[in-house]
Nucleic acid binder design. Structure first.
Length: 662
DNA sequence: GAGCACTGC
C-alpha cells in the first residue's frame, strides 16, 4: 500500500475534496486509485454520514477491488467493506465502503433517486465511457446541485479526456496521480500494412528472433486461425481482442503488438439495425494497449501503423457507447425517474446521443405502451423500468402475466439475456469431426421460431433436473445456462413483487397449450415486440420491417425457423434484432398472426414524434426545435400506405402465390 | 447458407 504513488497525494486530494463538490482524478494504471481513494476518504471521516460508493464498469473488478480493500483494512469482506453486483449483495449495516457495478448503482437510484445513502460517489474508469457510466455522469451532476452540502463526487479518468469531464462539471479541479508503469518504448510502422494478419505475424516473429525474453501480447480484431510458431526457447504469444485492454491481465507480457483496430457493434437509429464494424481504436485505447507491456518491467509496443496516423486520425477518446446503441432502455429509465426539470431530448449528457437516436427510442417505447402519445411514461412503462431487461422483453413479461403464460415468458426473456450464443453450432463440419458421440437432439421450436425453441430447451433442462452434464451432452454452453437460470430467478422475484394479479413463475409449470401452438406466449411476444415486426414479401422469402423506414431483410441462416412444405416462411414474424453482416438479417424470430398485428398498425398511424418527445413546447420557447420538425414529416410520409385492408389483400396474394408454386 | 468484439442490470 505504501508503495502506491497515490499515497503521497493524500493531503492534496483530501484538501481538494474539502473545497469542491466534484473532483476529477487522472490516474494511470497502477496508481492505486481504485483501492486507495475510498480508504483515504474513509480515514478522513467521509464515511461517517453515509456510504462511500465506488462504481466499476465490470463485476469482476468490483469484487476483486473490494476484496483487496477489505484485506488492506483488515476487515471481513461484507462488513465495513463490501460489494454489490447482480445476483450478489455482500454488504451489511456495517458497510462504509461499497464497491458496485455502475449498473447496480443505477438500479439503486430507481428507489432512491437522490442516492441519499451515499456521502461520496466515486465513478471509476469513466474514460471507458460505458453506457451506464455516462448515464451516471448526468445523474450525478444533477445530484451535486441538489445535495451540494452533503455529497462529494470523484470521477477518475484518463489523461486525454480529463479536461472534458472537468468542463462538464463546471470546471471542477483535476488532480493528476502518476501510475506505476515501467517505461514502454513505442515503435511505429513506417507505412500502413496491407494485411494486418501478415504484418502481425511478421512483427511477432521479428520480436521472437531479435528481442530478449518476455511474452508477446497481440491485439487483433477477432479470432485468428493459426498462430503458433513452435518456440525453441518457449516464448508465449497471446492473441487477444480488446478484452485484454481491460478485462484480462496477462502476466509476463513485455511486448505488445497493436493492430490499431477493434471490432465494434454499432446501432443505426434510422434503420434500427446493428452492424459489426472494424474501426480504428482511440488514442486512449492505444495507450491502454501499450501500457500492457510495462506492468512487470520496461517493455515495447509495436504499433502496426505510422505515428502520423496515431496523431492525426485516431480519435482522442473512444466513441461512447451511448452513441452506438439503442436507447430505448435508457430513455425509459430516465423517464421513470420523474425528474421534473428534465426533457429527455435535453438531458445533460457528457456526450449527447443524436436527436435521431432519442426519437427512435421514444417511438419504440410508444409502440410498446411504455409512454403515451404525449411522451409521458405510462403505468405499464413504470413497471417495465423495474425489470433489468430491454424494454421489449419487459413488455412481453407484463403481457404474458395477463395472458397466463408468465412462466414461459420468463424463460424466454432469461434465455435471450444470456450473453453469448448458448446453442451449439451444429452445422459446422469441424465440430462434427471433433465430437466423439452424437449429441442429444435439441427441440426445434415446433415451427414457431427461435424464442419457442429456447423455451423448449430450457424446459428440457428443467426436466433433466438442471443437470450440467445434460448441457455438455447437448453441446449447450454450461456457464451460459447457469446464467440463464440466475436471470430467470431474479426476474421471477421482481415480477412477484411488482406485477398485478396472480403470477405463477414456476419453470416447470406445464400448460396444456405448450404442447400445441404456444398461442398466448406468441401473442405476448407480439405485443412486446410491436416495434420489431416484419412482413414477408409476396413473391419470395424476404421480409420487410414494419415501422418508420421499411427495411428489406432476410431470416438469419442460424434461425431454427424453416420454410414450410411450399418453401415459404410465415407471413408475419417478430424479431429480436436486426444485424447487418454480409446482408441485413433478422436474428431470433417468432411467428405471429396477422390479427394480432393489426393494433400495431393503428398505433403507427397515430404516432406523432414531436409530441412524444414531450419537450416540443419548451423547444419552441427556446427556439431550438428544428430537428424534431423534420422527423415528424418524414414519418408521416413513411407510414401512410400501411392500412389494414391492403395488408389483408397482401396476405391473400401471398397465399395465392404460394398455391401457384405448388 | 452464414460466421459473433466486449460489458452490464
Amino acid at each position: 500500500m505504501a508503495h502506491l504513488p497515490i499515497v503521497q497525494f493524500e493531503e492534496q486530494i483530501i484538501r481538494t475534496v474539502e473545497d469542491n463538490s466534484v473532483v476529477v482524478v487522472i490516474g494511470e494504471t497502477g496508481s492505486g486509485k481504485s483501492t486507495q481513494l475510498s480508504q483515504m476518504l474513509h480515514r478522513h471521516g467521509y464515511s461517517k454520514r453515509g456510504i462511500i460508493g465506488v462504481t466499476q464498469p465490470r463485476r469482476v473488478a468490483a469484487v476483486s477491488v473490494a476484496r483487496r480493500v477489505a484485506q488492506e483494512l483488515g476487515v471481513k469482506l461484507g462488513e465495513e467493506v463490501g460489494y454489490a453486483i447482480r445476483f450478489e449483495d455482500r454488504t451489511s449495516d456495517l458497510t462504509r465502503i461499497k464497491y458496485l457495478t455502475d449498473g447496480v448503482l443505477l438500479r439503486e437510484s430507481l428507489s432512491d433517486p437522490e442516492l441519499s445513502h451515499y456521502s461520496v460517489i466515486i465513478l471509476d474508469e469513466a474514460h471507458e465511457r460505458s453506457l451506464n457510466t455516462d448515464i451516471l455522469l448526468g445523474l450525478v451532476k444533477r445530484l451535486t446541485k441538489l445535495r451540494a452540502s452533503n455529497l462529494k463526487v470523484l470521477i477518475t479518468s484518463a489523461t486525454l479526456d480529463g479536461e472534458k469531464v472537468s468542463e462538464f462539471f463546471s470546471e471542477s479541479p483535476i488532480l493528476n496521480v502518476p501510475g506505476k508503469l515501467y517505461p514502454v518504448e513505442v515503435v511505429y510502422s513506417r507505412e500502413r500494412p496491407i494485411s494486418y494478419t501478415e504484418s502481425c505475424l511478421k512483427t511477432a516473429l521479428d520480436i521472437h528472433r531479435k528481442e530478449p525474453e518476455g511474452d508477446v501480447l497481440i491485439f487483433m480484431t477477432g479470432q485468428v486461425k493459426v498462430f503458433s510458431p513452435a518456440p525453441p526457447n518457449c516464448r508465449r504469444f497471446i492473441v487477444a481482442t480488446n478484452i485484454a485492454e481491460t478485462s484480462l491481465t496477462v502476466d509476463g507480457v513485455v511486448y505488445v503488438v497493436d493492430s490499431g483496430y477493434v471490432k465494434q457493434r454499432q446501432y443505426n437509429p434510422s434503420t434500427g439495425m446493428y452492424s459489426l464494424d472494424v474501426v480504428q481504436i482511440s488514442k486512449v485505447q492505444a495507450n491502454q494497449r501499450a501500457g500492457r507491456a510495462g506492468r512487470t518491467r520496461p517493455g515495447k509496443c509495436y504499433r502496426l501503423y505510422p505515428s502520423l496516423m496515431y496523431q492525426d486520425e485516431l480519435l482522442d477518446v473512444t466513441v461512447p457507447e451511448i452513441q452506438r446503441t439503442s436507447l430505448a432502455g435508457t430513455v425509459l429509465y430516465l423517464k421513470s425517474l420523474d425528474l421534473p426539470d428534465i426533457d429527455i431530448l435535453k438531458f445533460d449528457f457528457l456526450d449527447p446521443p443524436s436527436a435521431e437516436s432519442l426519437e427512435d427510442a421514444l417511438k419504440q417505447l410508444y409502440l410498446i405502451d411504455a409512454i403515451d402519445e404525449n411522451g409521458a411514461i405510462t403505468s405499464i412503462g413504470r413497471t417495465m423500468a423495474e425489470l433489468p431487461l430491454e424494454p421489449s422483453l419487459s413488455r412481453t413479461l407484463l403481457e404474458a402475466n395477463e395472458n397466463g403464460c408468465l412462466s414461459q415468458a420468463l424463460t424466454v426473456a432469461a434465455m435471450l439475456s444470456a450473453e453469448t450464443s448458448l446453442l451449439p453450432n451444429r452445422s459446422s463440419k469441424n465440430n462434427e469431426k471433433k465430437r466423439k458421440q452424437e449429441p442429444v437432439e435439441l427441440p426445434t421450436g415446433s415451427g414457431y421460431g427461435d424464442h419457442i425453441q429456447m423455451l423448449q430447451i430450457y424446459e428440457q433442462w428443467d426436466r433433466n433436473g438442471y443437470d450440467i452434464r445434460w448441457c455438455r451432452d447437448t453441446g449447450l454452453q454450461e456457464r451460459g445456462m447457469v446464467f440463464v437460470k440466475d436471470v430467470r430467478k431474479q426476474l421471477s422475484q421482481i415480477m412477484q413483487k411488482i406485477a398485478k394479479g396472480s403470477t405463477d413463475v414456476r419453470a416447470n409449470r406445464r400448460y396444456r397449450e405448450s404442447e400445441h401452438d404456444y398461442r398466448n406466449l406468441r401473442k405476448a411476444l407480439c405485443v412486446g415486440y410491436a416495434n420489431r415486426l416484419a412482413e414477408r414479401m409476396i413473391q419470395h422469402n424476404g421480409y420487410r420491417t414494419i415501422g418508420f423506414k421499411p427495411q428489406l431483410i432476410q431470416v438469419h441462416p442460424s434461425s431454427v425457423l424453416k420454410a414450410d412444405d411450399d418453401g415459404m416462411f410465415p407471413n408475419y414474424v417478430v424479431y429480436h434484432e436486426l444485424i447487418a453482416t454480409s446482408r441485413p438479417y433478422m436474428r431470433n424470430l417468432c411467428t405471429v398472426e396477422m390479427r394480432w398485428v393489426s393494433p400495431i398498425f393503428k398505433k403507427l398511424e397515430n404516432l406523432d414524434v414531436s409530441k412524444l418527445s414531450g419537450g416540443l413546447h419548451r423547444d419552441v420557447r427556446n427556439g431550438e426545435g428544428k430537428s424534431l420538425e423534420l422527423t415528424k414529416k418524414e414519418n408521416v410520409a413513411a407510414r401512410t400506405p400501411d392500412d389494414h385492408e391492403s395488408r389483408v389483400l397482401a396476405a391473400r396474394e401471398r397465399f395465392l402465390a404460394r398455391k401457384a408454386q405448388k
